[in-house]
Amino acid sequence: MEKSKFFEGCGKEGPIRCIFLCEFHPIAGPKIMCQVPDDFISKEVFEAVSVYLIPKAQLLRSTLTITVCKIKILGFPVRIDNKNYARNFFYFNLCFVCDSWARTVQYEPVVKKLSDYLTVLEVESSFLSQREANYCQEKRLIDMLDQVMVGLNSEGMCTLIEGNSSTHLKVVKIRSDPPPVLDHQVPVFVESLESFQGEQWDLTTQQILPYIDGINHVAKIAAEANVENNLVKTCLQNLVYYLVVSMVPIFQYSNSYAVTPKLRKLAVDRKLQEDCLRTVAKSGWQLPNFRDVFKLYCSMTHGTTIKDLCIRYNPSSLRIDERKLVQFGVVENLIRRINKYPVLLTEGVTGEASHLYSYFTGLHSFDEICCNLGVSSEQLEDTIEKDSNVTIICK
């Protein structure tokens, strides 16, 4: 079972097993300066791959990955040229070691950033090349590598401070690009803002953050923040990529939703239930009954609007906020929005209605049309009801 679960190329992430620093010694040639934990990489294994860890000049400052003896070594070789060194250069490579099956692309920026930090320390104070002559310096280097490995494995981040120099390392998961953000979508926070520091955001993102309230759609955020629309969408797509926000449909009481197969998970997953109750509660001090929440979700079907559910169950009396209920369900994929798409059955519409009717192709939803033209859902519905040549597809 274990062999079938973990294999090279399986795409699963694994912990850092070892961090070591190797150099090209002017007398001994390639050698390991230090490693954490000690003796994880044997002399035989290192000698077998040293030609790749201390490579030719063409591969300097390149990310190198080597798989050997059931381990994967990720390095970033660096050479500092200076006539003060024995051979007029100092050549080193910081390496992370993982299991051979583990995905390591997420560590590549960290290895490069840590290598650059060590380069700065070496240029400023000979931190690496003079370590053998200074026991405290050698111990500090070992402690530093140990701090990095423990911090990245447990928290995915760590901060190093050496003298007046410091660096912050963070493992960022590499994901596929999220779908394009649309004008009529609403950003909803799925990660607490307190988890991030202000300086982590670019200026444009900081400018739009106050307008993300789970109600404003993208076009409205751009208008209120006085930021160009495409810039807002770029910032929001970045926040979606890093799982800070999720994009959901505009909330309206005329909306209809349908449950997804994932609703079954809500019935058995205790943590998901607790997150759900905290999120959908009308007030923070008194949580609703889970049975009532689950009943409301199960009642979401084709043709049943949120207004119908509110009339039938009165969520406020059950201590449930219907807006938060819908948003949590969409973010967690417990429910999905049933969109309406108007379709014009004839051709050749002219006059004032031609611009509106150009959207009636079956490719534009009510939300998109209302947002682009600045009309309400009720106005659009009235227009369609008066015209027998227009039908609505729900999907």
Rank of each mutant, 00 (worst) to 15 (best):
P210T: 11
L118A: 04
E8H: 04
A225L: 08
F294H: 14
E2R: 09
L334T: 11
S246G: 09
E194G: 04
L272M: 15
V186S: 10
V331M: 14
N238C: 12
E132V: 03
K56C: 09
D308E: 11
S192N: 14
G156D: 02
E47L: 01
S256W: 08
Y313F: 15
L60Q: 07
F294A: 14
V390S: 07
G214N: 07
L363C: 07
L334Q: 12
V97K: 03
E352Y: 00
E23V: 05
G198K: 14
S165R: 15
Y85G: 01
R87S: 00
H364P: 08
L94G: 03
V51N: 10
K271R: 08
K43Y: 11
K31C: 08
S388P: 02
D143Y: 10
R291H: 09
Q106Y: 07
A353T: 10
E47P: 00
N229Y: 06
A223Y: 12
V232S: 13
Q137P: 01
V343Q: 15
S246W: 04
C34N: 10
Y117L: 06
R323L: 12
C371K: 13
V188L: 14
I338L: 15
L128N: 02
G374F: 08
N226L: 13
P179W: 04
A222H: 10
L325F: 12
V390N: 06
F92G: 02
L287I: 03
D183M: 11
C310N: 06
A57C: 02
Q237T: 09
Y341N: 10
K295R: 15
P179C: 09
V123T: 12
D146L: 06
S283D: 06
G9F: 07
E8R: 13
R312K: 14
R87V: 03
C298W: 07
T104Y: 02
K395H: 08
Y357F: 15
P55H: 04
D99L: 05
F20V: 01
G198P: 05
D269E: 10
I80C: 06
V293L: 11
E155V: 04
H217A: 05
I369Y: 13
F290V: 14
N134Y: 01
H184T: 08
I27M: 03
P30V: 00
I32S: 06
D269K: 03
L114C: 10
S125E: 12
L236V: 11
